[in-house]
Design a protein around this nucleic acid. Structure first.
Lengths: 150, 150
DNA sequence: GGCGATTGATTTGTGTGCGATCTATATGCC
DNA sequence: GGCATATAGATCGCACACAAATCAATCGCC
């Protein structure tokens, strides 16, 4: 009625066979790839993602940034304080709704945008795949992410 | 000789168009998907990856685990101490080479393997894609990771 | 207008990740 | 054997990530 092998003896997939681990390790690999490039801008990788979001649309509040990056305010608050301390952004309460904190780029923060272009070129070169292939993989990964976030 | 627009004014890809962000956010989404399942086993997601690795091959040292998971000893040492404190593994110096710390599963650690099978089934269901599709995406992601790690 | 419920952000606590540094052990070469 | 070098882990410092709790401002409804 049952197998002769107990559950303990049966084999289990290794991490090398798990999609989640591929995504986990590929994400870390990208962080490592970015690190030396972003070090020159004085940014960490998550800080860079925030800056990219602001370069595209300035003046978002913490919640909007969180929705764009899938991050909680408890992650963003200290990160934004560090960007503030670095002189790249300002954090001001919205006069229309004092609960919101509006994030605006400083001149220095805007200026970094030019260097970011070089970083992106560098990353593209390191990945070394044609744009269409990258796009197809990205679409698949996005689909998985959006599925498991229900 | 140059554009009329300065670099500051030209548009920049948003995070939604960056492959690195897709991997970053998909990795986090998986961690969130695993969390409630692993909570019942008393494991975090990185701890689960270590356990999966040990269930497949017991008795590895810290360096080998690090190579399998792409993690540094400075990450693994405290993590392994927590698994030790939870009674799931033992940490003993290798008598053949006292520099190495060998990680062995305890009976309790071995016993968790059965529950892990349920977790994996649950994850597969949540992803809801056929095995071949998942396999193809995984292969692409692995290729990118291995490329950018040189 | 007033008051309970909701919302946006901060704070707190735990657990990664990783660079840099340190310590102990082992190895290589004379 | 003796000493420089290399290797395996551990430690330290900093920056995420996120759950849970807290606080202030606003909204909803009467």
């Amino acid at each position: 009625m049952t197998d002769t092998l107990s559950d303990d003896d049966a084999s289990l997939p290794d991490v090398t066979g798990m999609l989640c681990f591929s995504l986990y390790s590929a994400g870390h690999a990208f962080t490592q790839l970015y690190r030396p490039l972003l070090d020159e801008l004085g940014l960490t990788y998550p800080q860079y993602l925030v800056m990219v979001t602001l370069w595209n649309r300035d003046g978002q509040n913490v919640k909007e940034l969180g929705q764009a990056l899938f991050l909680d305010s408890s992650t963003l608050t200290p990160l934004l304080k560090r960007l503030d301390a670095a002189g790249l952004i300002t954090r001001t309460r919205n006069p229309k709704d004092e609960r919101e904190v509006l994030i605006h780029l400083t001149t220095k923060g805007q200026a970094l945008k030019a260097s970011a272009r070089d970083v992106m070129r560098c990353i593209e070169e390191a990945v070394g795949m044609d744009a269409d292939t990258v796009k197809a993989i990205k679409a698949s990964v996005d689909k998985i992410r959006d599925t498991i976030r229900q």
